Amino acid sequence: MTVRFRLDWDGQRVTERTKAAAVRGLGKDAEHLLGESRQEVPIEEATLERSGVASVDEDTMSAAVSYDTPYAVRQHEDLTYRHDPGRKAKYLEDPFNRERGTMLEILAAEIRRELE
């Protein structure tokens, strides 16, 4: 028994769709990390928490989560500050490390969904 099939491969289209899916996945990852970090960010008047943003750079295929106040870095790095319960320094680094597997799954799922 002979089985024949024809496959037309459009590599450029596959690459474009995969890249678009990866950009969407990176955006979802950044939003996920922002949400997780907002649960730990030190809160006094919520200015620091409200300054958090997620962004994606399509050209470099990278995502970022940032907090934009004059004291954001110091609050993140200085382990001697006292915070309300559940709030702490390393409010971005710790969720990133903890959620790494989840973010990889989010990214992979977005690419898989595009290629199905």
Rank of each mutant, 00 (worst) to 15 (best):
M1Q: 13
M1W: 13
V3I: 11
V3M: 02
F5I: 05
F5E: 05
D8Q: 11
D8P: 01
G11E: 09
Q12M: 12
Q12C: 07
R13T: 15
T15V: 15
E16N: 10
E16S: 12
E16D: 12
T18C: 08
K19C: 08
K19G: 06
A20L: 01
A21Y: 04
V23T: 10
V23Q: 13
R24K: 10
G25L: 07
L26Y: 07
D29E: 15
A30N: 03
E31M: 06
E31K: 13
E31R: 13
L33F: 13
G35T: 08
E36A: 11
E36W: 00
S37W: 02
S37C: 11
S37F: 08
R38F: 08
E40V: 04
E40A: 06
V41Y: 10
I43N: 11
E44M: 13
E45Y: 06
E45R: 09
A46P: 08
A46L: 14
T47F: 12
T47W: 04
L48K: 00
L48Q: 01
E49F: 01
E49C: 01
G52Y: 05
V53C: 00
A54E: 12
A54P: 13
S55C: 00
S55F: 11
D57F: 02
D59L: 10
D59P: 08
M61Q: 12
M61P: 03
S62P: 02
S62M: 10
A63T: 03
A63M: 01
A64S: 02
A64I: 03
V65L: 02
Y67C: 03
T69R: 01
T69V: 00
V73I: 15
V73K: 14
R74S: 05
R74E: 05
H76L: 08
E77H: 06
D78P: 05
D78G: 08
T80W: 06
Y81H: 14
R82L: 09
R82F: 06
R82N: 05
R82T: 14
H83A: 11
H83N: 14
H83W: 14
D84A: 15
G86H: 01
G86N: 06
R87M: 09
R87F: 09
R87P: 12
A89G: 06
K90G: 02
K90C: 05
Y91L: 02
Y91V: 05
L92H: 07
L92P: 10
E93N: 04
E93W: 07
D94W: 11
D94T: 13
D94F: 12
D94E: 14
P95D: 08
F96Y: 12
F96K: 12
R98Y: 02
E99T: 06
E99C: 03
R100P: 05
T102R: 11
L107Y: 10
L107H: 09
E110N: 01
E110P: 07
I111D: 07
I111Q: 02
R112C: 05
R113L: 04
E114I: 03
E114T: 00
L115Y: 01
E116M: 12
